[in-house]
Design a binder for these strands. Structure first.
Length: 567
RNA sequence: CGGGGCGUAGCGCAGCUUGGUUAGCGCGCAGCGUUUGGGACGCUGAGGUCGGAGGUUCAAAUCCUCUCGCCCCGACCA
C-alpha cells in the first residue's frame, strides 16, 4: 500500500475526547473513528490488525477441532426470557421492536441462540462432543463506554461453545480451549496471563480470564512466584492465626467516640487483628451484616456470591440507623433479625473485640460461636499484595491487567432451561454439559497498544502489525531514490512481504514521525546517503540502532527477519 | 444512576465574564516558489447553520429556558 492512497490520516494533535493512550494513538494514527459513545469505525490499518488476529484465532479454533458457524445478531427477546437472563443483563441489553411490535434484542452474546441450535441438531450421545464458534459483532449497552476500544457498546468477539455428555467431557474440552487460548496470545506476540476468575452469579464451577498485563489495566491480578494467579475478585490468601488464649467471659467496655478499628484497637491496647469488623450491606433489599477480622477487608464480589444476591451495596448511614444499629458500633453480638455472613477468619483466634450495638460501647472477649451466630461462614476476604499465598506460603504480588479473554464451565443450567438434551446408550435423556469461551478482538487491539507503545507511538508485534515494513524513500531530485524505492517496493511484495510505501513528498521528519506513530515493526529508509553505499537503512521500531544493508540483500533479509523475530 | 467537565472550520483551541463591524489563531487542506536524515519557510487561497430549539433585545457565539451529544471519576460491567 502507498501512503498517498491509504485511507486515513495521521494527526499531530491529540483529539480532546481521548484520555487513554491506546485511544489517543489509534486516533492519531488514523486507525479508528468514533461515531457515538462506544461505537467506532475501523479504518484500513485497524481492520488489517483485526483480521490478522482473527486469522490466528480461526486457525487455533479449527486446530482444536471446532467448527465455525455464524449466528444472528437479531434475537427474539422471548428466547432470553426462556433462559432467564433478561434480568441478569438488565439494561445492558439493546432491545428493539419490529414492525409487528415484537420485541427483539441485539445479541450481547450467543449462548441462547447456539443452545437452541444445538438442541435442534443434537439428539444422541453419538452427536457429541461438539465445539462451535463464530466471530461476530456483539452489542452491549454499557453504562459507561470508555478507553477507546477497551470498553465499547458494539464489538467483535470470538465466541466458542462446547457441548459434552458429561463433566469429564467438559473438562477435557475446557483444557483443549485453555491451551488454544494460550497459543493464540503467544502467536499474536501478546503474552497473556491466565488467572482464576469469578464466574459471576450465572457462571458455573470454573472460570479463567486471560489478562494482558499493563499498568493502565482496570483489573487487578494477584499472583505468586509459585504460579498462582487470580483476579483480585476471586483471589484468596492466608489469613494467619491470631492469639488463641483460653476464652474469657464476654465483657462490655466503654469506648466513647471510638468508631474505627484503629481507634478501638489502640484504645484497648490491642491490634486490628484482634477485632471484628462488621459492615452493613443491603442485598436485594435486605439488610445483612458482614463480619470479618479487623485487619482484613471484605471482597464484595465474594460476599455477593455467598449471598447469591443479584444486587448488593453498602448501606447508607441513614439505613443503618433506621435498622436500629449504631454506625461505628455495629456487631454480630447481641443483635437479632439480620442475616449474618462471616468470613472464615472469625475463628482464627479468641477473645476478639467487637462492636457493642449501642453508642460508645464495644465488647471484649468475643468468641465464635459462643457469643454470636453466623448464617454463612465462608471466605469473603479480599486478598492483597503482601499477603501470603494459600498455595505455597510465598508473598503475593499484584499487577494491573486488561481482560482479553474469559472462559467458563457453564454446566447444564442453560441446556436445561432451553431443552438441549441428548439420549444416552440406554435411551435416557440428559441435559448437555456446556462451556463457553470468549475473546474480545477489538479490545485485544486496544490492549496490545496499551502494552506496546512509547512516547512516539505504537510498537506492533510482528504477527499482528497492519504491515510489516515501512518503506521510507527520502526523495531528492537528481537521485535514483524514487526509482530504487519503487523497485524495492515491487520486490518486497513479490516476496510476500507486507509493505507500506511512504511515497509522499514530505520531509524526513514527517515520514519518520508518522512511521513511529503507526508503529510498523521494520523501517527501511532509502536516501541519497544510503545509496552512496549502495545500501538501505533498516531499523526495528523497538530498537534504537539501525543498520545498513546492501540493496541486493535487503529483500532476503526482510523475508528472514519478518519470519524469525518474535517482535 | 450520582459527581465534574466540554460542544466555535477536518484536528487542537481563543473569543462568552461586561451582547455591538466581514467570528479569530495554530495545525491540516489547495496553488506557486525555495527547502529535504527527526514534524522547514515565504506568498496566495478555500473552508463556519458558533450542537439544536425557543426566548430576551434594535442587536446573541456571548444573557435566559429547554433539549441533544461527547468525555472524565464513581456506581455498574453473565
Amino acid at each position: 500500500m502507498r501512503v498517498t492512497r491509504l485511507f486515513g490520516k495521521t494527526t499531530r494533535d491529540v483529539p480532546a475526547e481521548a484520555d487513554t493512550i491506546s485511544h489517543q494513538l489509534m486516533l492519531r494514527a488514523g486507525m479508528i473513528n468514533q461515531l457515538s459513545a462506544g461505537v467506532y469505525s475501523y479504518l484500513p490499518l485497524a481492520l488489517r490488525v483485526l483480521q490478522k488476529v482473527e486469522a490466528i484465532i480461526r486457525d487455533e479454533m479449527n486446530k482444536a477441532g471446532s467448527q465455525e458457524v455464524l449466528m444472528p445478531t437479531l434475537q427474539p427477546l422471548e428466547l432470553w426470557e426462556t433462559s432467564g437472563r433478561v434480568k441478569a443483563f438488565g439494561k445492558g441489553l439493546f432491545v428493539l421492536k419490529d414492525r409487528k411490535d415484537r420485541d427483539l434484542v441485539l445479541g450481547p452474546t450467543h449462548e441462547e441462540v447456539i443452545t437452541t441450535l444445538v438442541a435442534r441438531f443434537v439428539q444422541s450421545y453419538r452427536d457429541l462432543p461438539q465445539m462451535l464458534y463464530q466471530i461476530q459483532t456483539k452489542f452491549r449497552d454499557e453504562p459507561r463506554p470508555r478507553g477507546g476500544l477497551l470498553r465499547v457498546r458494539e464489538f467483535t468477539m470470538k465466541d466458542l461453545y462446547s457441548f459434552d455428555v458429561d463433566e469429564a467431557g467438559l473438562d477435557k474440552n475446557y483444557d483443549i480451549m485453555l491451551n488454544a487460548y494460550k497459543a493464540i496470545y503467544e502467536r499474536c506476540g501478546l503474552p497473556a496471563i491466565m488467572v482464576e476468575a469469578d464466574s459471576g452469579a450465572i457462571g458455573g464451577k470454573a472460570s479463567h480470564e486471560f489478562m494482558l498485563p499493563t499498568p493502565s489495566g482496570e483489573d487487578e491480578i494477584i499472583c505468586c512466584s509459585c504460579g498462582y494467579a487470580a483476579n483480585v475478585e476471586k483471589a484468596t490468601c492466608v489469613k494467619g492465626v491470631c492469639l488463641n488464649d483460653k476464652p474469657e467471659p464476654l465483657e462490655p467496655v466503654s469506648t466513647p467516640g471510638m468508631k474505627t478499628i484503629e481507634e478501638v484497637a489502640s484504645f484497648m491496647r490491642s491490634r486490628p487483628s484482634q477485632t471484628y469488623k462488621t459492615l452493613v450491606y443491603v442485598a436485594d433489599n435486605n439488610i445483612i451484616l458482614a463480619v470479618i477480622r479487623g485487619d482484613l477487608e471484605v471482597n464484595e464480589i465474594k460476599l455477593k456470591n455467598a449471598l447469591k444476591a443479584t444486587d448488593m451495596r453498602l448501606a447508607t448511614e441513614a439505613e443503618v440507623r433506621e435498622a436500629g444499629l449504631w454506625p461505628g458500633f455495629v456487631s454480630p453480638v447481641a443483635v437479632d433479625g439480620f442475616k449474618v455472613v462471616a468470613d472464615d477468619s472469625i475463628d482464627s483466634g479468641s477473645n476478639f473485640i467487637a462492636g457493642g450495638n449501642k453508642p460508645d460501647t464495644h465488647f471484649k472477649n468475643v468468641n465464635y460461636p459462643r457469643d454470636f451466630k453466623a448464617d454463612i461462614v465462608t471466605d469473603i476476604a479480599a486478598a492483597r499484595a503482601g499477603g501470603k499465598c494459600a498455595r505455597c506460603g510465598g508473598t503475593l504480588n499484584s499487577q494491573q491487567g486488561i481482560e482479553v479473554g474469559h472462559i467458563f464451565k457453564l454446566g447444564t443450567f442453560l441446556s436445561t432451561k432451553l431443552g438441549a438434551n441428548y439420549n444416552d446408550e440406554q435411551g435416557q435423556s440428559h441435559p448437555i454439559v456446556m462451556g463457553c469461551y470468549g475473546i474480545g478482538v477489538g479490545r485485544l487491539l486496544g490492549a496490545a497498544i496499551e502494552q506496546n507503545h512509547d512516547d512516539k507511538g505504537i510498537i506492533w508485534p510482528m504477527p499482528i502489525a497492519p504491515y510489516q515494513i515501512a518503506l521510507c524513500p527520502l526523495y531528492r531530485d537528481g537521485t535514483p531514490v524514487g526509482e530504487i524505492a519503487e523497485k524495492l517496493y515491487a520486490e518486497f511484495q513479490a516476496s510476500g512481504l507486507e509493505v507500506l510505501l511512504d511515497d509522499r513528498k514530505e520531509s524526513p521528519g514527517i515520514k519518520f514521525n508518522d512511521a513511529d506513530l503507526i508503529g510498523l515493526p521494520l523501517r527501511v529508509t532509502v536516501s541519497p546517503r544510503t545509496l552512496e553505499k549502495n545500501s538501505v537503512e533498516v531499523k526495528w521500531r523497538n530498537k534504537k540502532d539501525s543498520e545498513l544493508i546492501p540493496l541486493d540483500q535487503v529483500t532476503a533479509k526482510m523475508v528472514e527477519w519478518t519470519r524469525s523475530r518474535p517482535k
